[in-house]
Write a protein that binds this DNA or RNA. Sequence first.
DNA 1: TAGCCAAACTTGCAGGTACAATTAAGTTGT
DNA 2: ACAACTTAATTGTACCTGCAAGTTTGGCTA
Lengths: 160, 160
Amino acid sequence: MSETKWLSADERNAWVKLTAVLELLPAALDLQLSRDEGLTHFEYFTLAMLSEAPKRMLRTSALAARTNATLPRLSRVVTRLEGAGLVERSPCAEDRRATNVALTEGGWQKVVAAAPGHVAAVRRLVIDSLTPAQVENLSEILTVVVKQLDPDGRMLASDS
Amino acid sequence: MSETKWLSADERNAWVKLTAVLELLPAALDLQLSRDEGLTHFEYFTLAMLSEAPKRMLRTSALAARTNATLPRLSRVVTRLEGAGLVERSPCAEDRRATNVALTEGGWQKVVAAAPGHVAAVRRLVIDSLTPAQVENLSEILTVVVKQLDPDGRMLASDS
DNA sequence: TAGCCAAACTTGCAGGTACAATTAAGTTGT
DNA sequence: ACAACTTAATTGTACCTGCAAGTTTGGCTA
């Protein structure tokens, strides 16, 4: 039962700013994507992860790890995206419990169409107001933070 | 109709890390607070904003601005917190359309009780892995970002 | 090869949030 | 003084997510 070590003024200031970003940035990203493309940021991110995978296909649980979604959540998102014709489910040959999720041609084109607007939003909201040195600092700082949040690196995995 | 200006490798790396934090950090904060105190991070934040206000009281819309919640969302959160005895609604004397939301004594004690665990989580997940210089850099960087996200500074308002 | 535990989803149910419509009260213009 | 407009807050409806339970398949052990 130790004394609480409170935050210093600098620490507190950084934290307040971070909570503001946590609250505002997801909403801003969702707004642009749903307005322009009818996708949530999470749906876009899911499609983007698939688009970068070999053969544009991943097993459901690998996709869940990359998007940091729970399996139930991803299952329903995939159902929606499948309904929109953007992805396809297929049984996995090696393990018949598993299902593969693959981007359809339409899904690929959706990602290609949505990417420029999304990147523009990322630039406008974050990147373009920072100096190159700040971008690099931010990257280093967040690398450390992510290591605390996701020690196993599930979200950045490069394996199959 | 201009060409898309894609992200450089550095920019992309910073962005990937930021999206990871956006996904993981809220979940981690919610986990600690709901496990230890039965509060969501948003509920805790709402109580904390009230605790810092003069007389521990704010009008609903001022509280909504500080927490960046929509009015409907805040209305329901306040209803829940009121049900738990942590806040009280009272009609506003100057403007009878408005309602004031005030922390009860129990609500104040809840904040006091919850703060140490929350601060510990903030330290563990973010602050303590960074050098003082990184904390300051982070603060500067996020100040710029917040300016893009919230140009009017609603979330950091110091007025009534 | 029979039996048992673990893994990969999927679905039922409960809870929280957004958007739109609603109610009530202040403000403005004539 | 009254009608039209704006603002503050709440509620109806629909959707999304988490947790827990269920189903099918894989792997391990006797």
